[in-house]
């Protein structure tokens, strides 16, 4: 039997003995665009970090392609939240994108012309090639996000984890980003995206993971992104519920 791409087995993560994720069991496979949804503090980022081994897991295991994470890091691309780095750091856009190739290079080897070509190509794909030699602090929020995306492209991974790539970007950038995500899927890659905006879910994603401390539902948008599941996830929050109802109603006929 072929091992699934990502197997999260009964994972519990706790910060200071307060569980943030409780007993999450997930199997992700196939090239799909997967949205991770849930209210604030639901543990969306923590789930990503747990899969990537960036936070200690209290109990449970994570396997990537049937093997422990440590052996499979090269398969994984990661786009952290934009606020996680110091944008006044003295590097250029191209430098940041080149960092995507570091994992493949391993220790000591320096990026050469081949890696530069990959980086430039990635920048072309996000439309930032003109800004390659700018310092990153001079970019707008959307451009910074696209830089991160280009870096992930340069990683040339088999599966991508992105932590709110749409936070604080304009509508145009958001469309560009999703165009790219579809391209990645077409190349047979799996993309897991933490997402905030419920309105765009049906048009962007194939699958959704609804999360609120524990896994609420996981499956194709059509069957999973339902009013009932959203209520389980977001609760009686009227505004969110009404909006969800609208979205579900709007997306239903097309499915």
């Amino acid at each position: 039997m072929k091992s699934p791409m990502v197997h999260v087995h009964d994972v519990t993560v706790a910060y200071h003995r307060k569980p943030v994720l409780w007993n999450v069991d997930l199997v992700l496979d196939d090239p799909r665009l997967i949205g991770v949804l849930g209210p604030n503090g639901a543990g969306k980022s923590t789930l990503l970090k747990a899969i990537l081994g960036l936070v200690p897991i209290a109990s449970g295991t994570v396997e990537i392609g049937g093997k422990p994470l440590a052996k499979q890091r090269r398969l994984i691309g990661y786009v952290p939240q934009r606020e996680s780095v110091d944008w006044e750091f003295p590097v250029t856009v191209l430098d940041v994108v080149l960092m995507g190739t570091y994992g493949r290079l391993g220790w000591f080897r320096r990026p050469g012309s081949k890696e530069r070509a990959i980086a430039i190509q990635s920048l072309e794909r996000v439309g930032l090639v003109d800004l390659a030699h700018q310092q990153i602090g001079q970019l707008s929020g959307g451009q910074q996000q696209r830089t991160f995306l280009a870096r992930a492209l340069a990683q040339d991974a088999a599966l991508y984890f992105m932590d709110e790539p749409m936070a604080g970007v304009d509508a145009a950038t958001e469309r560009v980003i999703f165009g790219l995500l579809r391209e990645l899927r077409a190349q047979g890659k799996m993309v897991v995206v933490v997402h905030h905006d419920l309105r765009t879910v049906p048009s962007y994603f194939d699958d959704v993971i609804l999360l609120h401390r524990r896994l609420i539902a996981h499956g194709p948008v059509a069957s999973t992104f339902t009013r009932e599941n959203l209520r389980k996830c977001y609760g009686g929050n009227l505004a969110a519920l009404e909006m969800a109802a609208e979205i579900v109603a709007a997306s239903a006929p097309t499915k």
Partner: peptide, 12 residues
Amino acid sequence: YPDQAGPLADLS
């Protein structure tokens, strides 16, 4: 009650 359970629920 997911909205109130979020901060309240201590699954441990």
